[in-house]
């Protein structure tokens, strides 16, 4: 009755959570198990869950076929640069939107929100040409600079800045702080958790980004993990005995994010709760 937490109800609740939890986690578990199987085991009917003799060298064999370490490094570095630039520019913009008065402010914010509603894909052709004109095709820089604009990050940080008490800003100004000081010493520290969450979400999205980077980079040493992985899949997928290696490559691709998530999972959740994003 109190929160409906009677015993039978609690039991059903747990049962459903376990059921859904298993379904959600199953593909990941299946991927890990498959990456340790021999090609015979992976094709076994009826299926075998646990590899009888874990093939740890699947990982090193996959690494021999393609430089996954390099791909992961490329992806990580690219994503970090993008996130840093996004946070800097979005914080500045959010500061202007919340602290400065100027003509057409609302119009500007609304038109940016509307842009967010529009599919980014519509910009791909011209953006591709722009990147080409800048001479940045097949460079990681090309991927980085074309991803700096993030409406989602602006939106999230603006939301956090709106919640900074006015008195704090006024007190800082009374002490002679200029705009940059207010931004650095008041707004950003007060919104740390949201900014961190925004950075995490953005990092995950950029690390996982595929379509746009796949258009920009063409040489193997510039591949991001998603691009390299799909290339590996299309070249090796036709050979049945390579499937354990493909699974191992998948594990390699997913692992950095899973580790990140295991350590920082509460931040994904906290930032969203702190903000109360409204529709």
């Amino acid at each position: 009755m109190v929160n409906g937490a009677t015993k039978p109800k609690r039991f059903v609740n747990y049962l459903l959570l376990i059921l859904f939890g298993s379904v959600m986690i199953l593909p990941l578990v299946w991927m890990f198990l498959s990456s340790l199987k021999t090609s015979d085991e992976i094709f076994a009917v009826p299926l075998t869950w646990i590899p009888s003799n874990p093939q740890w060298d699947n990982f090193s064999r996959a690494m021999e076929l393609a430089p996954f370490g390099l791909y992961i490094y490329n992806s990580t570095v690219t994503a970090i640069f993008i996130v840093v630039f996004q946070i800097i520019s979005s914080s500045m913009f959010a500061y202007a939107l919340t602290q400065l008065e100027f003509k057409g402010k609302n119009l500007l914010f609304n038109s940016i929100l509307i842009t967010y509603m529009l599919p980014a894909a519509a910009t791909y052709v011209p953006s591709y040409v722009i990147v080409a004109r800048l001479g940045l095709l097949d460079t990681l820089t090309g991927i980085i600079i074309s991803n700096i604009a993030s409406v989602f990050t602006i939106f999230l940080i603006r939301q956090a800045f709106l919640q900074v008490p006015k008195e704090l800003v006024e007190a800082a100004r009374a002490d002679g702080a200029n705009d940059l000081t207010v931004l650095m010493k008041v707004m950003i520290p007060m919104s740390k958790s949201t900014i961190f969450t925004a950075a995490l979400i953005s990092f995950v999205q950029m690390y996982n980004n595929y379509l746009w980077p796949s258009l920009i980079v063409s040489s193997q040493e510039k591949y991001l993990i998603t691009v390299g992985l799909n290339r590996f899949f299309t070249t090796q997928g036709t050979f049945a005995d390579q499937w354990p290696l493909i699974m191992a490559a998948n594990v390699l691709a997913v692992l950095p994010l899973l580790i990140l998530f295991i350590f920082l999972h509460k931040w994904f959740i906290k930032g969203i709760s702190d903000n109360g994003v409204k529709g």
Partner: peptide, 25 residues
Amino acid sequence: TFFRSILFSPWITPMVAMSIVWSWI
């Protein structure tokens, strides 16, 4: 917290990698 993390975990994985796993599934 444990269940919430489990249920949320698919979101953080790369769609490309998981699509490969799913195509096998």
